[in-house]
Simulated assay, not measured.
Amino acid sequence: MNAPLLSTPSVEAFFFDADPGTRFSLYHAPAPRRPELGAILYVHPFAEELNRSRRMASLQARQFAAMGYAVLQIDLFGCGDSCGDFSAARWDIWRRDLAAALDWLQQRSAGPVQLWGLRLGGLLALDFACSTPVDGIILWQPFLHGRTCINQFLRQRLTETEGDSTAPRSTAVLRANLAAHGSIEVAGYSLARELAQAIDACDAAAMPVPPCPIHWFASGGPAPARQAAGVARLAQRWAERDAILHYHPLDGPPFWGPAAGTECQALLAATATVFGAGQP
C-alpha cells in the first residue's frame, strides 16, 4: 500500500499496488468504542453509474462504519480514479482487484467479511464469491443477467444518435458493430468486446454461490409484482447450495441514474435495519 492521500480519524484515502498499476481506495475504520462487527468490501457499478452513485455509496459506507464495520471502497482497474483506461478493463482484472482488496481488508479485520455490490457490482460480487468464499453478500438493485446491463448501456448510444438516420437503431446492430470492430464508444466510455462478452456470460441463477446469507435490496421504484416469482425461483436455486436469499423490496429513486446528487433514504434506512445489530 502506498502512503495515504488523506487520513482522518475515520476515513483513509490511498492507492494500493495491483497488477497492473494502482487502485484508488477509501477505507472507513469501524467506529471506536463499539464492538467490531466485521468487514465489508464495496463493489461499485458500471461506467457512469459509478460516479452517479458515489454519494450514496459514501453515505452507506459511513453508516456501516458507525455501526462497527470496517469498510473498503475500491475503484476497479480502468474506473474512477484508478489507473488504466476503461477500454482496457477486463472482468478477470476486476476479479483480481477484488481479491487484492479483500486480502488487504482481511489483514485489518478478523471478523466476518461481506461483499456489498451495487448494480453490475452486485453481479461481479456474486461471481467473485463463487471462487472466494465470503460470509455474506449485500446486493443493491443488482443486475442478475449481464446481458441486461450491456443492453441498457448500449441503449444510451441509441439515445445519443437519435435523429441521425444513418445511425444504428437497435442494440442488435450495435452488438454486431462491437463484435466486428472490437470496441464501441458509448457516453464517453470505450467498451471492449472482451469485457462485454464476459459480462454477457454472467447469469446469477446459474452461479454456484457460496453457502451464506444474501440480502437483496430492490429500490428504484415500487418492485414489480412479477418480480416476486423470479425472486422465489432464484431463492430456491440458491437454497440448493445452502445460500439463503433475503429479499427487501422498497420504494426509492434510481440514484444511479442521470439525476445528479439523488439520494435514497429508504434504502439507507432498510440497510441499517438489517445490519445495525450485526445480524447477517
Rank of each mutant, 00 (worst) to 15 (best):
M1T: 05
M1E: 03
A3F: 14
L6F: 10
T8A: 09
T8G: 09
V11N: 07
V11L: 10
D17S: 10
D17Y: 05
D17V: 02
P20N: 04
H28Q: 15
A29M: 14
A29Y: 09
P30T: 00
P32F: 02
R34G: 09
P35F: 03
E36P: 09
A39E: 04
I40L: 13
I40H: 05
I40Y: 03
V43K: 04
H44Q: 14
H44C: 07
P45F: 01
P45C: 15
E49C: 11
L50H: 11
R52I: 01
S53N: 04
R62K: 15
F64W: 14
Y69I: 07
A70T: 05
V71T: 14
Q73K: 06
I74V: 15
L76W: 02
C79F: 01
D81K: 15
A88G: 02
A88C: 05
D92S: 15
W94H: 14
R95G: 08
R96A: 13
L105D: 02
R108A: 11
P112M: 00
V113K: 11
Q114L: 10
W116A: 12
W116K: 09
R119I: 00
A125L: 10
L126Y: 13
D127I: 02
S131T: 13
P133M: 03
G136Y: 04
I137A: 05
L139G: 10
P142S: 04
C149K: 14
L154M: 13
R157E: 02
A172R: 14
A172G: 08
V173H: 05
V173L: 13
R175K: 12
R175N: 09
A179M: 10
G182V: 01
G182F: 08
S183V: 02
A187P: 01
Y189L: 10
L191R: 10
A192Y: 11
A192L: 12
R193Y: 07
R193W: 08
A196E: 11
A196K: 08
A196Q: 01
A198S: 06
A198W: 04
D203N: 11
A204F: 06
M207T: 05
P208T: 00
P213M: 11
I214F: 07
H215L: 13
S219R: 00
S219W: 01
A223I: 02
A223V: 14
R226C: 07
G230H: 13
G230F: 11
A232S: 09
L234F: 06
E240L: 11
D242E: 11
A243Y: 07
A243D: 07
L245K: 05
H246Y: 15
H248P: 05
P249I: 00
P254L: 04
P254G: 06
F255I: 03
F255V: 00
A269M: 04
T271C: 02
Q279T: 12
P280M: 09
